[in-house]
Design a protein around this nucleic acid. Structure first.
Lengths: 211, 211
DNA sequence: TGACGATTGATTATCGATAATCCATAATCT
DNA sequence: AGATTATGGATTATCGATAATCAATCGTCA
C-alpha cells in the first residue's frame, strides 16, 4: 500500500488534505497556517501551499489577511444562519425536482434515515452528522442540477454540520423524527410537499442555532 | 484623493481585472491564458498571475487542465440552465426578504429600470446587461444575506448575462417590460409577489436559452 | 504512404531566494 | 511615566530560474 500522491499536482493534493482536516476538526477554527511549515510537512516549496490556501479561501474554508496569514474560519453565527437560509431554498427546490425518485435512491434514503434514528438514540453526534449529510445530499444530487450540488457542498464548509449537531445533541431524536415525513412525501412522489417539509425543518434548525 | 490600488496585493488586482474582462467579453469563451504573457502585461512575475487564475478557477470563470493551460469557460447550455434555475430561487427568496425596501433602494431600482427600457429601445446590449445586472443584484443585496450575494455573484460568471442578452437581443423590450411589475410589487412591499414574478421571469428566460 | 517514436519549442508546476510587511519590543523623547 | 518612533524576528508576497510535461514536428522504417 503506497501513497497515491504523485498522480495529481501537489497543489490539488494539499488543498484536499487541508480541507479534509478542516472539516474533520483536526485544525480547530481559528487555527493559523504558516506556509513554510506546511511546505516542510508536505515536502514541497511554498508555492503549491500558497495556491492551495488561495483555493480554500475562495471556497470559504479559510480566511486570509494580507501579510497576516491564513486561518481556519470560525463558525460565525450570522454566517451559519445565512448558510441555513440558503440550504433551505436549495433543498426545497431540489426535492421538487427530485421526484419521482428511483427506488434505489429511496432505499439509500431509507438506510440513512434508519441510521439517523440509531445515531440519535445513541447520542452519536459524528454518526448522526454523517448520515444527515448523506440524506440531504442525496436529495440535492437527485435534483439533477450539478450547480445546486456544487453550491450545496460549498455551503457545507460554512454550515458546519458537526458543530451544529453537537450543539443540538439533546434534540437529535426529534430532529431525526422530522426527517420521516420528508421521506414519506418523496416516496409518494409529492415533491412540493417534501420541499416544504425540508424548508420548514431547515428554518426550525436555523432558529435553534447559537447566536 | 488617490488610487487605493497599491494597497491591495497584485494577485487580487489581477484577479479582478481578469474577471472584469471575462464578464465583459473582452476575452472570448475558450480564450487561452498564457501565464508569462499576463505576467509581462501586468509587469509582475508568474506567481501572482497563477494565484489569480487559481481563484478564478474555483469561481468557475475559467477551466484549468494540468500542464495544458487555463481557458475562459464556454457558456455551456446545460450549465447556463442550471445557473438560471439557481438564480430563480435565489432571487425569489431575496425579494421576499427585501421588503420593505428603503426609498433609496427603490430609487436606484427605478433608475436601472428606466435605463433598461432605454437600452432595450436602442438595442444596446451592453448597456442592457449592465443595468439588468444592477437591478437584480440590488434585490439580492437588499435581502441582507451576504452569502446569497456571494453565491449570486459567483453564479453570474456562469450565467453569462451579456451572452444571453445578445442571444435575446430581439426581445429585449419585452424582457425589460417584465421587470416593471417586479418593481411595482417591491414598492407596495409585496415581497412574495415580487418573488414569484422574479422566479417566473427567470424561468421564462431559461426556456429561451440556447440548447 | 503512413504509423511510430524521438526531438524540440512552448508552457505549466515547482523551487529557492529576496523584498515587503507585520508585530512585539526596545529605545528615545517630552 | 506615557507616548512615539526605531529595530529585529517572523511571515507573507513576489521574484527569477529550473524541472516536468505537453503538443507539434520531423525523420525513420515497414
Amino acid at each position: 500500500m503506497s501513497q497515491p500522491l504523485l498522480r495529481r499536482c501537489m497543489r490539488d493534493q494539499i488543498r484536499d488534505r487541508l480541507l479534509e482536516r478542516i472539516l474533520e476538526g483536526t485544525y480547530a477554527p481559528g487555527h493559523r497556517f504558516v506556509e513554510l511549515d506546511l511546505a516542510a510537512e508536505f515536502q514541497v516549496s511554498q508555492s503549491p501551499v500558497r495556491e492551495a490556501l488561495r483555493e480554500l479561501e475562495v471556497m470559504g474554508a479559510v480566511d486570509s489577511l494580507r501579510y497576516k496569514g491564513t486561518r481556519v474560519r470560525s463558525p460565525n453565527p450570522v454566517e451559519m444562519a445565512e448558510a441555513y437560509a440558503l440550504r433551505a431554498i436549495l433543498e426545497q427546490r431540489s426535492a421538487e425536482l427530485a421526484v419521482p425518485c428511483p427506488p434505489a435512491v429511496l432505499d439509500s434514503l431509507r438506510a440513512d434515515l434508519v441510521a439517523l434514528h440509531e445515531a440519535a438514540r445513541d447520542r452519536d453526534v459524528a454518526r448522526y452528522s454523517r448520515h444527515a449529510f448523506n440524506f440531504h445530499r442525496s436529495i440535492v444530487v437527485q435534483s439533477g442540477n450539478h450547480l445546486f450540488l456544487e453550491i450545496w457542498e460549498n455551503v457545507q464548509t460554512r454550515a458546519r454540520l458537526p458543530f451544529v449537531a453537537q450543539h443540538l445533541s439533546a434534540e437529535l431524536a426529534s430532529c431525526a423524527a422530522d426527517h420521516d415525513p420528508i421521506l414519506v412525501a418523496l416516496e409518494k412522489g409529492e415533491g412540493a410537499s417534501a420541499g416544504r417539509l425540508l424548508r420548514t425543518f431547515m428554518e426550525s434548525l436555523l432558529a435553534k442555532l447559537p447566536r
